[in-house]
Structure formats: structure tokens, C-alpha cells
Amino acid sequence: MHVPAKPSPKEVPRATFLGRAVAGNLGALAVGVKYFFDPNRITLLYPHEYIKLRQGYRGYIVLIFDKCISCASCARICPARAMKMVSINVFDKKLKKYMKKKYPVINYNRCIFCGFCVDVCPTEALYHVPYHDLVYNSMADMVLTLEDFQKEPEFVTAKEGVPVTYIYDEKKGLVKVHYEEEGGEVQKAEGGQASAATEAQGEQAQGGGG
């Protein structure tokens, strides 16, 4: 199937003087008034709400220590030189003795969350957690130790905030929905698709948010 793109000459819509002065102004004002009375707000009230991101989001990276085979692919592909290999003494279960092995550590001052390290890891020893809004007290804290790198970082916003998620809607674009409700629906529906019920709830949540 070969359908080439085709140029299509178009024209800027012309308007008569009266059409411009009357219809143009009234049209603009009508749209403004419409949204004044029926606003379509998408703002996330951030610390009070936070987006529950879906799995697959390229958030912070966690190491699964036991799966790492010290191949250094992650450190080699890191475009920001954030990941380095350090040698530590570990107990090898097969050889039954302590030996020096290399493990990756990450410097979050430099990380750009491109996810190359996760994608290149041959044993899937790295994975993303689906959140990205973390707080560190100092830049030195962002240079993670090997122990910290194995823990999922603490997601502070989740303690106070309400998880919300955005679903697509034909009328309103993105609609903010409380996450639990949608999650419950999804589990019932088992299809992973936002049903009509969740959309109704979404509009409710939207109305309540004003």
C-alpha cells in the first residue's frame, strides 16, 4: 500500500467587516462564557493529590541484588555517567567463599531517567518504581550507597496526598479520577479498560474538586 502524502492548498478563512466585528467578537465571547460557567479544570492540586503513575513509568531505579551478574552493561550504557560499578566483598553461594564482586551504584544527581540501564540489563536486575517526586536533604544524599540502591525509595507524597489518575475522555480531554475507585473498577472489569462507570465517577470527582 503506497499512499503518498499530498499537498493540499488551503486558505485562511476570510471574513467581511461585519462578520469580523460582530460574529468574531460574539464567537470569542461565547466560548469564553461557556467555559466560565462550565470549566474544564485539569490542574493537579499537587501535594494534596498526586498522580498514581502506571507501571512502566520510568521512575527511580532499584537494584535486585541477587539477580545482578556484575556484567557492567548498565554502567557502560549510562549516558550521564550516573551509574558506576563498585567492588565489594560478597559471599558466593556456589563457591562457598567470600570474593570481590562488582555491583552498580547510582548517583541521582546525574541520572536522567532514560532507562537505558534497565533496558540493557540482561537479567532484569534493575527495575523502575512508578514514582519520581522524591526529596533529598542534600546533594550528597543523592549519591546512593549500594544498600540504598536496593531499597525502593520512600514515596513521601503518598503519605498525605490522595492518589489520582487521569483518564481520557472525548469531551474533556483528560479527566482526573481518584485512583482507588478506578483501580477497583479495573479489577472487577478485568479488562484494564476504563469503563463508563469510572468516567461518571471521574466527572463527579471533577465537580467536587471545584
Binding site: A72, A75, R76, K84, M85, V105
Partner: peptide, 8 residues
């Protein structure tokens, strides 16, 4: 890609 732990 390799570094000393302390230096890192």
C-alpha cells in the same frame, strides 16, 4: 565505569 566505593 569502575570506581572505588569511597571515592564514589
Amino acid at each position: 565505569i569502575e570506581t572505588d566505593y569511597e571515592a564514589y
